[in-house]
Design a protein around this nucleic acid. Structure first.
Lengths: 165, 165
DNA sequence: GAAAAGTAGCTTAGGAGTAAGCTACTTCTC
DNA sequence: GAGAAGTAGCTTACTCCTAAGCTACTTTTC
């Protein structure tokens, strides 16, 4: 007999324990929760950004430019490396964002192979508004279940775990 | 001046703090790490399952059937609900898995609208091998950076956080 | 300074997901 | 028990991603 499942992830682990008692299900519960939280927050943040007319992936591009500081200019190569996206995918995102007037492409004066991508004024406004809204939303969710000490503890453990990847 | 960044997520938070000192970046670091860990483990587990000829999504289907216990039979509807996939997506996955001989579809004797999806012997073998391999891999990663008490602490905090979603 | 190797960004083909809508069947309602 | 409403699974159209290969240009090597 297993303990009463406390959440859907525990329920899945209990099912496994019943049919495969030889398994150590702890790693599955840790990574299962991480996966579900990531996905749930992804959905919420997607909705939040949608209010500003951009997708999560588009936000990533704008945010990378914004936090690089003035003059808000990077190459497509730097952007695709930072956002963990292939260059093919980046071409498509830049096309959409350029068409929406949130950034512009111009030739790199020092390397005729390259381009420079620059955030427009409208792009800077939108990313500033959406990053604020997203952080506020995340803050509310966190505050609802963890106090400041717990959040710090969680962050420390996550930093350790991320270092293994 | 901010403290020396300890990982890429801290570096991003430090960049934001430099250009937008008004932001509270704590939620971003928590969810940023969760997102990156989820993605990194997703890539690793994908490779692990590939050794058995299946994708991560296909594993999810087989695993859901396997842990439901004998006779390893569920409806497409139950499968798409459990795996958080639309029915359209499930149709495609079942097509692939049926063609590979890992499961079979048969009419539901009690409801002529419905189907029953049943794990084949070959499917059961593959899911049993791959779940063992995946858990071992995850176990090694966890053991490399967290002791048992820390893992339990992390799991507790994650359970709390997941409950907010 | 010419050839070889490397790099930047784009294009194309293919995979896998969602959303909406379809047909067939079942359940509810009177 | 006939009509209305609901449900199961599939199909289609669309989106967005990756992987591989292209052209153009730069850097290294001899």
């Amino acid at each position: 007999m297993t303990a009463t499942p406390r959440d859907p992830v525990d329920a899945i682990a209990a099912q496994w324990a019943a049919v495969r008692p030889d398994l150590d299900t702890v790693p599955m519960t840790v990574y299962g929760r991480i996966y579900r939280i990531s996905r749930a927050m992804g959905d919420r943040i997607e909705k939040e950004y949608k209010r500003f007319g951009i997708s999560r992936g588009e936000f990533d591009v704008l945010a990378t430019l914004r936090r690089s500081g003035e003059p808000y200019t990077l190459s497509p190569r730097q952007l695709s490396a930072t956002t963990m996206l292939t260059t093919g995918g980046m071409t498509g995102r830049l096309d959409k964002l350029e068409k929406a007037g949130l950034l512009s492409r111009s030739p790199d004066p020092n390397d005729r192979r390259g381009l420079r991508v620059t955030l427009s004024e409208k792009g800077r406004e939108i990313v500033d508004e959406s990053v604020t809204a997203g952080l506020e939303m995340q803050h509310e969710v966190l505050d609802g279940v963890l106090d400041a000490a717990e959040a710090e503890q969680l962050n420390g453990l996550l930093r350790k775990l991320l270092s293994a990847h």
